[in-house]
Simulated assay, not measured.
Amino acid sequence: MKLYRLLTEDDTAEFCHKVSLALSKGWELYGDPTYAYDHANGVMRAGQAVTKDVDADYHPDMKLGQQ
């Protein structure tokens, strides 16, 4: 089964660390990153979709970050 996550964070080094951690756990980049202005908080936000193949059945209670 293929899992999907959308990682988001303010445009800081923390975003890069979040994506790097996911990659180190076997997640793969999916598509291009996104970048947008968050008017409510006055900051730029970054996003990156990642996917991972796992040997398990999907369940909505899965903690995707722990896969």
Rank of each mutant, 00 (worst) to 15 (best):
A56W: 08
M62Y: 00
V19K: 02
L7P: 01
E9I: 04
L29E: 01
P33C: 10
Y4C: 02
C16P: 12
D57C: 12
L3G: 01
Y4V: 00
K2E: 01
A22I: 00
H59T: 12
V54P: 00
R5N: 14
Y30S: 10
A22H: 02
L6F: 15
L29C: 10
K63Y: 01
N41H: 15
L6S: 02
K2L: 09
G31N: 06
Y30P: 00
H59G: 08
T34K: 06
Y35M: 09
L23N: 03
G31T: 01
F15W: 05
W27T: 07
M44Q: 11
D57N: 13
V19L: 09
A13T: 13
E9S: 12
L3F: 02
A13Y: 02
E28K: 04
D53E: 15
A46H: 14
K18S: 09
V54A: 00
A46R: 15
F15D: 06
C16D: 13
Q48W: 01
A56L: 12
S24E: 09
D38I: 06
D55E: 07
M62R: 08
P33I: 04
Y37K: 13
D32N: 12
H59E: 15
M44F: 11
A49G: 13
G26R: 02
T51I: 15
S24V: 08
V19A: 08
E28M: 07
K25R: 07
T34S: 10
A49R: 11
H39M: 05
S24K: 09
Q66L: 07
D53Q: 14
S20D: 05
H17C: 08
L64R: 08
M62A: 03
Y35D: 06
P33N: 12
A22N: 07
